[in-house]
Structure formats: structure tokens, C-alpha cells
Design a protein around this nucleic acid. Sequence first.
DNA 1: CGCGACGTTGATTTGCCTCAACGATTGTGG
DNA 2: CCACAATCGTTGAGGCAAATCAACGTCGCG
Lengths: 194, 194
Amino acid sequence: MDTGNIEIVEMFKGFSITQEDFRTIENKFQHLKLHKGDILLHENDIVYNNYYVLEGCLRAYFIDDSGKEHTLQFAVKDWWISDYTAFFSTGKAIMSIECIVDASLYKISKNDLEHLYLEVPQIETYFRKKLEKAFASFQKRILGNLSQSAKERYTTFIATYPNIEQSIKNYHIASYLGITTESLSRIRKDIALK
Amino acid sequence: MDTGNIEIVEMFKGFSITQEDFRTIENKFQHLKLHKGDILLHENDIVYNNYYVLEGCLRAYFIDDSGKEHTLQFAVKDWWISDYTAFFSTGKAIMSIECIVDASLYKISKNDLEHLYLEVPQIETYFRKKLEKAFASFQKRILGNLSQSAKERYTTFIATYPNIEQSIKNYHIASYLGITTESLSRIRKDIALK
DNA sequence: CGCGACGTTGATTTGCCTCAACGATTGTGG
DNA sequence: CCACAATCGTTGAGGCAAATCAACGTCGCG
């Protein structure tokens, strides 16, 4: 067994999977490495893959009509990332995904994943549960966007993702929160002054 | 067979389910009716159930610290509704759900649903796919909130959910879009003037 | 009819944006 | 190792979209 296997075992920890099923699973994953600045997925690409982060950091962002970037998601160790709107329907990406800290990933294609669901039902459960968690956090984010000020959203973000904050630039946080870098700067100043 | 069965068959259209599995499934659903104004779920309730709408309209809303309501979701025919943040983790509701048009529902408990996933794998697939769709639409909503003006969000809402618009008050739309009723009124006036 | 719920309109305020300029920090080539 | 540029963050002045506050019209219904 090489280290790749160990990492995939880790991915499905908590799910009892036979040795045989595990062979089926690991054959469908491919490893890849990215450097800071690399674009993993471009807007308008057809989205075939779902990506699992072993290490590093990525961000999925959307560019609106006026050219502004809006970050939908960051992904660090043990997170999945893709353009799911496109991935689930095998359509074209509306977002791009870039590497913001050198990263190591596994990818699996939609086709392989659908086959895995049939061959190894625990995998479908695994992804359903992942999706449930992601769904719940999107739900909280929507409620936060509806009910909180920029300052509140910032402090919530910092409290919720202290590990992500360390890896990213302030302008990435701003684009995630839906504010400008200038506003974020003023908010941070304000907080620093107690 | 009573009409209930027919409705549940309809629920899973497109999924080939044996007669025997179908008996297992239908036994876990319970029917209920609501009148306009009824509260299906209160904030702080433990959330045991997921609800399927046969007819009528409901809304899930969150009340923030200042007492303002924010609508997360509407549900009309063939939609599911619950406080999923709580349902998935069997925790306390952070939202309430009220009936805004007399409604007829089916409910299924989390426990029964988890058992169904094991007994009838197509059910897990059904809910995974539902979740994928809901996830994608939440994603679009977040991007819309980040990148669009109130007027743009309103026109997008009307275009996306023309069937829902008919059932609900303007102040419900406003609380979904994250604006005040006054602002929505001005936006509508503006649009009416071309 | 009269009351409460809903929607509209106006005046004013405000949170955040825009635009512009300027520090601070990081990276890179000479 | 320094010089310089690019990137990133900060600060200020002014503007604008939407909120707030207040009043009033309208509709449906007991």
C-alpha cells in the first residue's frame, strides 16, 4: 500500500468498508497537485470532477456582469470542492476554482462516482451526509447574509473558520462576505480599537 | 389502495420500486392537514420530521435578534420542507415553519427515513438527488445575494418562482429577498413605470 | 360599518460603495 | 543584498441604495 491508499482510507473513516470494496473505490480516485495561482476549473468548462483536498487551500468564485469576484467557498484539508451546480447536472461551470495555497488533491469523476454509489452503498451515504452538512452551512450563510451587518458576518466568519482565515488574503474574505476590501479594512480597524 | 398511496407513488416517480418495497415505504409516511396561520414547527422545537407538500404553501423563517423575520424557503406542491440544519443533526430548530395557504402534507421521521435508506437504497438516491438540487439552488441564491441589487433579486425571484409568487404576500417576498416592504414597494412601482 | 392587515409614499438617515491617494509588505532581478 | 515593482491593505471624501420612521390609502372580512 502506498500513502495514497492511507489517505483514501482516512477520507472514509467511520464507514465500514470491506477490503474488496476499498479496492473498487481507490481505483476511481486520481491524485493531483496544484501550485498557488493555478486554476483548477474555469468558468464555462464542463464539470466532470469532484475534488477532495488533502492539503493546501482553494477557492471557488463567481465573476458577475460588472467583473467583480464573489467567493462562494473555500476548501482546506478534508473538504470537497467543485462547481456543484454544474457537477450535479454535468453542465458548464458558472464559477472558477483557483488554488490559493499549494495543494494536493484527489479527484473522482461524476461517472465513476455514480457507479460507486451502486457498487458500494456506503459511498452514497458518505456523500449524502457530506451534502447534508454543506447544505446546512449554506443555509446558515443565507440567514447570516439576510440578518447580519458586514461586521457581524466578519466576526462570525473568523469564529467559524479560524483555520481558513490563516491561509487567505483579506480581499478573499471580503469577496466571501460580500463587501469591499475597503469596508473590511475599516471593520478590522474598528474591531482592533475594541 | 386509497388516494394517499397514489400520492406517494407520485412522489417517487422515476424511481423503480418494487410493490413490496413500496409497502415498506408508505407505512412510514403520515398525512396531515394545516390551515393558513398554523405553525408546523416552532423555533427551539426538536426537529424529528421532514415534510412533503401535496398542496398549499408553507414558509420557513428565521427571527433575528432584533425581531425581524427572514424567509429561508417557501414550499409548494412537490417540495420538501423542514428545518434541515436541525433535522439532519436531530437538534433544535433555529427557524419556524408556518402555513400560508391551507395545506396537505406527508411527514416522515428522521428515524424512519434512516431505516428506509437501508431497506430501500433507491430512497437514499431519491433524497440525495433532491438534496443536490436544493444545494445548487442555495448556491445560486448566495451568489445572487452577493452580486445582485435588490431589484435584480426581485426580478430573478419572480422569473424563477412564478407559481410561488401567486400564493404569497409581498412582505413575504421582501423577507426572502432581504429587503424591507417599503423598498419592495418602490421597486415594484419602478418596474411598473417601465 | 369599522377594524386590522397590507401596501404605498415621503422625508430623512445610514451602512457600505466608489474613487482616489497613499503606506506597508512581499517578491524579484540586478 | 539592495532597489524597485507589484501586491495588498489602509485612509479619506463623497455618493448612493436601501433602511428607518412616520403617515396615509386600500382592501378584505367579522
